[in-house]
Design a protein around this nucleic acid. Structure first.
Length: 279
DNA sequence: CACGGTGCCTGAGAGC
DNA sequence: TGCTCTCAGGCACCGT
C-alpha cells in the first residue's frame, strides 16, 4: 500500500529518469484510469515536456511546460514504472506515456501506470496556486519546508475523534496511511483509540515526530537503484519485513515489552498495537 | 461544521 | 479439488 515513503520513492525515480523528456505518446486502457474530474483526456499531454516531478502527501504530479499538470494517485495498488517500450506488458497496465529517448536503451521509454484494484488514477488538472486542484485540500506533509508542527498539534488537540483517525486525516497532515499510523503510535506509546482532546500537546507532538522518523527511515531503505525502488513500491520490500514493529504482526511479541501484539477492527481498518505499552 | 459510515475494486487466502 | 466468502485500505461522497 503506497503511503508517503513509497510515493516519495516513485517520485525520486521519475524525477531521475523522466525530467527533461518529451511525451510523444499517451494511452489509457481502463475507464477508471483517468479521474472523472480530469479536464482533458490523457492524450492532451502529448508534446509536453516534463519539467519536474512533485509530491504532497500521497499525491504526485508531473510539472509540464503547460498550464496544467498530470496528477497521479496510486490508491491501494498503483505503480508507476519507467520501462523500455519493449518490456513485456503487465497484466494490470492501465495507462502509459511514451517518452522521447531512453536511459535503458536507445529505444523509447514508457511511464507505465499499473494498478490491480483500480483505486489509483491519473488526471490532467490546472493549478490552484502551487498545487493542482485535486491537491488543494490536502494538508502539507511533514517533509515540506513549511510544515508547521505547532499548528498541526493544535488542530489535533481540538479534535474529538480517536488519535489514529486524526493522523490518517489528509486534511490535518498528509502522507500517513494505515501502516505508518500504527507504527507511529507504537513508537510514541499511544493507544490508537485515545481521543485527541485527552492527549497532551507533548504527546501529540511526539506522535508526529515518530511518524516523520519512521517514514524517513522507510524512504532511506527505498534503495538507490532504479529496480530496487520499484520493488519497494510493490509493497513487499525488505523494509516491511525488517522494520515494522506492529503492523501485520498480530499475536507476535512486542519488540519493546515482549507482550502480544493485538489487532482490532477500527474505523473500517485493522489497527495493530501493543496493549501493554500503548495505553 | 464535524464526524461516521459506505462504495468503489480485485486477488489472495481461508473455510467448507 | 473447487467453490464461496472475507479481507486488504486509498479517497470521495453522503447522511446525521
Amino acid at each position: 500500500m503506497p503511503e508517503l515513503p513509497e510515493v516519495e520513492t516513485v517520485r525520486g525515480g521519475l524525477n531521475q529518469y523522466t525530467v527533461g523528456k518529451k511525451i510523444i505518446g499517451a494511452e489509457s486502457y481502463h475507464p477508471r484510469a483517468i479521474k472523472p474530474g480530469s479536464i482533458a483526456p490523457l492524450q492532451a499531454v502529448i508534446g509536453a515536456k516534463i519539467q519536474a516531478v512533485n509530491r504532497r502527501g500521497k499525491f504526485l504530479w508531473l510539472r509540464l511546460d503547460r498550464e496544467y499538470a498530470l496528477v497521479a494517485h496510486l490508491g491501494m495498488s498503483g505503480q508507476l514504472l519507467v520501462q523500455p517500450a519493449s518490456a513485456p506488458q503487465q497484466s494490470h497496465l492501465r495507462a502509459k506515456l511514451d517518452l522521447a529517448g531512453g536511459f535503458a536503451s536507445k529505444q523509447s521509454d514508457q511511464i507505465r501506470f499499473i494498478d490491480q484494484r483500480t483505486f489509483g488514477w491519473l488526471s490532467i488538472e490546472e493549478y490552484a496556486g502551487d498545487v493542482p486542484t485535486s491537491v488543494r485540500h490536502i494538508a502539507v506533509d511533514p517533509f515540506e519546508a513549511n510544515f508547521d508542527i505547532k499548528k498541526v498539534v493544535n488542530k489535533i488537540k481540538s479534535k474529538k475523534c480517536a488519535i489514529k483517525t486524526a493522523i490518517l486525516n489528509q486534511e490535518i497532515l498528509s502522507g500517513i496511511g494505515n501502516i505508518y499510523a500504527d507504527e507511529a503510535l507504537w513508537r510514541a506509546r499511544v493507544h490508537p483509540e485515545i481521543i485527541c482532546e485527552d492527549l497532551s500537546e507533548v504527546e501529540i507532538k511526539n506522535i508526529i515526530t515518530s511518524a516523520k522518523r519512521v517514514m524517513k527511515s522507510a524512504i532511506k531503505s527505498g534503495g538507490t537503484s532504479f529496480d530496487e525502488q520499484y520493488k519497494n513500491v510493490n509493497g513487499e520490500s525488505g523494509y516491511f519485513s525488517r522494520s515494522l514493529k506492529v503492523y501485520g504482526r498480530e499475536g507476535q511479541r512486542c519488540a519493546r515489552c515482549g507482550g502480544a501484539i493485538h489487532r482490532i477492527a477500527f474505523a473500517n481498518r485493522s489497527s495493530h498495537f501493543c496493549p501493554c505499552c500503548q495505553r
